[in-house]
């Protein structure tokens, strides 16, 4: 464990807690893409298949349970909670996320480190996580005005993967034969997808104006 990875995990944890806090306290999911949340639940479900078979550390198991629990409860809130669901803007959240799932699955079947069910599922979760934010970014473009909790959520979500890239660089230089191209490339793609959001987020923060994304 290194500081970059720990900071990345804490940032990731903060992003899901910010979202849960927003939904649970103000009972609203305005501006939140249910599709991105469903994709994230799928990412965690396919990545943490080893939850009950390989014990790595208490920290690892605990964090996996938190991510699984939070992502599925967020989906539940937006889908079924009688108050929260009313603020879900399904006419705007129209990204066909199934078009993301299938290519990621096919790609995982083609490009993976080992052709086993667990490894393909794990690789699928990496590719899917890289594009899971797209419905959310599209929704933000459409709804234009971004309340700051949603802005913070997306920012933290992007920052966590950027910190993971630092972690991979650190591990590459400190651990012999630590090479995982699939992880690195999908993590880089994921972070680049946030790049334009980061740019506008930083601009709005610097000029102290409300975050507006160009149409």
């Amino acid at each position: 464990m290194n500081i970059f990875r720990f900071a990345g995990d804490m940032t990731h944890l903060a992003s899901v807690l910010v979202l849960l806090l927003k939904i649970h306290t103000i009972k609203s999911c305005a501006g939140i893409s249910l599709k991105t949340q469903e994709l994230y639940a799928l990412v965690f479900a396919t990545r943490y298949l080893d939850l009950f078979t390989d014990y790595i550390s208490l920290y690892n198991t605990l964090m996996k349970l938190i991510f699984l629990g939070s992502s599925f409860s967020i989906v539940w809130y937006i889908r079924y909670h009688k108050i929260v669901r009313r603020s879900y803007d399904k006419d705007q959240d129209t990204f066909r996320h199934y078009f993301l799932v299938l290519p990621c699955l096919l790609l995982a079947l083609l490009i993976n480190e080992k052709f086993t069910f667990r490894e393909v599922m794990w690789t699928f979760s990496l590719y899917l996580e890289a594009v899971a934010i797209l419905p959310q970014l599209v929704l933000l473009q459409r709804t234009r005005n971004i309340d700051n909790l949603t802005g913070q959520y997306v920012f933290l979500l992007g920052a966590y993967r950027a910190l993971y890239i630092l972690n991979w660089i650190y591990r590459y230089f400190t651990e012999p034969h630590y090479v995982h191209w699939i992880t690195w490339i999908s993590g880089l793609v994921q972070t680049l997808l946030y790049a334009d959001f980061f740019y506008y987020y930083f601009q709005s923060w610097k000029n102290n104006v409300k975050l507006e994304l160009p149409a």
């Binding site: 990875r5 390989d54 790595i56």
Partner: peptide, 10 residues
């Protein structure tokens, strides 16, 4: 679990 594998990450 060989700790150097990336599977020890979240």
């Amino acid at each position: 679990i060989n700790a150097d594998s990336v599977k020890d990450e979240l």
